[in-house]
């Protein structure tokens, strides 16, 4: 099986900066590609660009977008549905780390685990730590 890829769709291309920073933790992540949404690009142009790239993505590849309701997600959704690629919006570092780790170590990607990891990654830090401390005291 060809290694799955990750395609990032972000406003202005901040996914690229995220990927660069992740390399500090993860090493090479050559299976991550970014198509930035730039201000002057229309939906149709962006769609065509993303679709062209998505056409060459191997099975189990994923599309990560930044904002639900944004053009990145709107384009990704249309393409993901047509090409049978899973799309996750709400791109963040823990989501990327999980997906990249899986692909690096297994050459495969378990979508449900990636999604779950992303969903549980937003944490009220002080609140959760306080709760955990209180639990130990009682």
């Amino acid at each position: 099986m060809e290694k799955p890829q990750i395609l990032l769709l972000t406003h202005g291309g901040w996914g690229k900066a995220l990927t660069e920073s992740l390399k500090m933790i993860m090493g090479s992540v050559d299976f991550v590609h970014e198509i930035p949404l730039l201000p002057e690009v229309t939906f149709a142009e962006y769609y065509a660009k993303v679709d062209e790239y998505a056409a060459g993505m191997p099975e189990k590849s994923l599309i990560f977008t930044d904002v639900f309701g944004g053009t990145t997600t709107n384009a990704g959704a249309k393409i993901g549905r047509e090409r049978n690629i899973k799309v996750v919006s709400g791109l963040n570092a823990p989501l990327m780390i999980e997906a990249c780790t899986q692909i690096q170590y297994t050459g495969d990607c378990n979508f449900d685990v990636v999604l779950q990891q992303g969903q549980s990654s937003i944490i009220d830090v002080i609140g959760e730590v306080t709760k955990s401390m209180e639990k130990k005291e009682s």
């Binding site: 406003h11 229309t42 939906f43 904002v67 309701g69 944004g70 053009t71 709107n74």
Partner: peptide
């Protein structure tokens, strides 16, 4: 707006 509903409109 050719993008219709998108980030700028929503936020």
């Amino acid at each position: 707006d050719s993008r219709l509903i998108h980030g700028q409109v929503m936020t």
